[in-house]
Design a protein around this nucleic acid. Sequence first.
DNA 1: CGTCGAATGTTAATCGTTTAATGATGCGAG
DNA 2: CTCGCATCATTAAACGATTAACATTCGACG
Lengths: 336, 336
Amino acid sequence: MATIKDLAARTGLSTATVSKYLNGFTLKERNALAIREAIAELKYRKNDIARSLKTSKSRAIGVLIPTLENPFYSAITSSIERTLMESGFSTIICSYYSELHAEREKIEFLLNKMVDGIIHFPLNRTVDYDILKQVDGTVPLVLVDRPIEGIECDVVMSDNVGAAFGAVERLIALGHRRIGIILGPDDQYSPALRLEGYRLAHEKHGLAVDPRLVVRGDYSMTSGRDLLFRLLDGENPPTAVFSTNYETTVGAMLGINERGISLPERLSFFGFDDFALSTVFRPRLSVVAQPVRLIGKTSAELLMRRVRGDLADFPLRVSLDAEILVRETIGPVAAE
Amino acid sequence: MATIKDLAARTGLSTATVSKYLNGFTLKERNALAIREAIAELKYRKNDIARSLKTSKSRAIGVLIPTLENPFYSAITSSIERTLMESGFSTIICSYYSELHAEREKIEFLLNKMVDGIIHFPLNRTVDYDILKQVDGTVPLVLVDRPIEGIECDVVMSDNVGAAFGAVERLIALGHRRIGIILGPDDQYSPALRLEGYRLAHEKHGLAVDPRLVVRGDYSMTSGRDLLFRLLDGENPPTAVFSTNYETTVGAMLGINERGISLPERLSFFGFDDFALSTVFRPRLSVVAQPVRLIGKTSAELLMRRVRGDLADFPLRVSLDAEILVRETIGPVAAE
DNA sequence: CGTCGAATGTTAATCGTTTAATGATGCGAG
DNA sequence: CTCGCATCATTAAACGATTAACATTCGACG
């Protein structure tokens, strides 16, 4: 592969001159032309690795996510990648598949690669986040979807409280007084917030929360189905159910279809996250849609700013509004 | 950030010795110990960029895909990433969003980054693939999902003909004689093969193909819905419909739900690709499931082999069997 | 014409590693 | 005691770019 040295030799110029030309300095037209010719003839391709070594900027960003198999993560990642690419940065993907050790291992991995910054989707677990403190001094870090206690850095997330509040309030407005909520694990971040929104909506409308209507699982599809059944099969079942993540929503719909429960006549159902599914079901699913594109774009843009040295408002906490998409699965509470 | 030089200074050894230690050579225990201590104290982190420059191996693989928003691509990508990570390689994602210029631009981009290999999902278009010939000489290239004429390289794909054949044969076995097929654009690779499978199944069973039952769109969700309607609204409509990609399948199901057509009584429906959807619909969707995990794993492993210099069987063309998942949307042809 | 300053080029060191070639050290055998 | 051979370490030159600091060219102007 041709190097700058080769171009220099071919044109009779020095490597410094060629390098400058390549970096946008203007030369005498004669020389510029000669270099252009040499590039074409020798099929010169610049070596970003060498450049990175010298400048200590890799123009690569590490994105650390639980998995690409979940549309929530892959949609955000997609939008991140697109935004970074527009700034000429490449995206190094690392999934950690919710494995404990993998997360810190991969942060090391990324740091070794001299990434210029990291975007991390932490899953809330009791994990040792010292490593993130190390990141702190090294490269900018943006956390997506939730903050981590003790780590001072930018965070981009959706307004979980507001999202849940909005959905539950819609249900209350339709006359529902017994609203079940399907939540995720205690040790994750968002469930508590979504529950808080649920609570606030009740409070605002002077309703008490029946703890039996608050059920928790592991945010998986099967847990969605199982918890739905638990709610429905309890004494004094809810007239509406709010599922608070994508997987449980799919699972719950599965359960609903399985039992042939007709929505919204016999039950009102509010889901979470707006991917392919919600437009396909009949009746069309009412969901809280997190602004995935925007989350991705925002975190990438924020990181770019930090990488460029713009530390204004650090640490910034961006909370993006979710959309409440009322479609066909919620309706007035069924007459007894 | 501490460098090898610092470790050397701290321990009184030479950089060469430290480097060797770091690369697994054995030293006198005394020295090894000293280095380990120094690493801890100085918080040494190896610099993969410098290493790459010297060794001309980046241990990074570029993955070029149309988009991460499509579950087919993101599932394969996920599996690629996982497999590569196991070999200590990082994955650089580049989406080209089906834009013509972006594809070649991004290949350049990846080559500049000195990736050790490229996995590419080409969309079949009349695009100038000279650039891929350049790749040829530089780093190994694995094509996923389809080959490109004139480019001699490894290809991993699913058995499109067999997949379609299998699905259509199931329908024929149920007595269907008029089977509609929803295809993608002419200039993509797989539609022709899927049609071929459809044709072969007819041929085998002595059936003629009615060209009016073969409809083409752009493989989008709306095209799925529209083409379904076109088939159903034609004179002498089909008793079964086979949709040949994920988007059109979702779109067609949307249309089916919209019209309240009951499956499989009034219509048998065979879809393509097995993502979240198919398990959620009631009745459960019968689909041809491409082995996405396996496609990802296989291409990554094959690329790793090439990167390691194992050129056995080059160029290799791997065709992976799709699974025919017969579930509830197909049934015997309706009695008139 | 000589001089000066802007514009254009060059020299050479450097980024943090790796690695051939070479050097030192120690140990057993004769 | 010395030779020879492993074994362990070191020297120093790369890898391909960038970039201060310095050198040259050239035209304008007094």
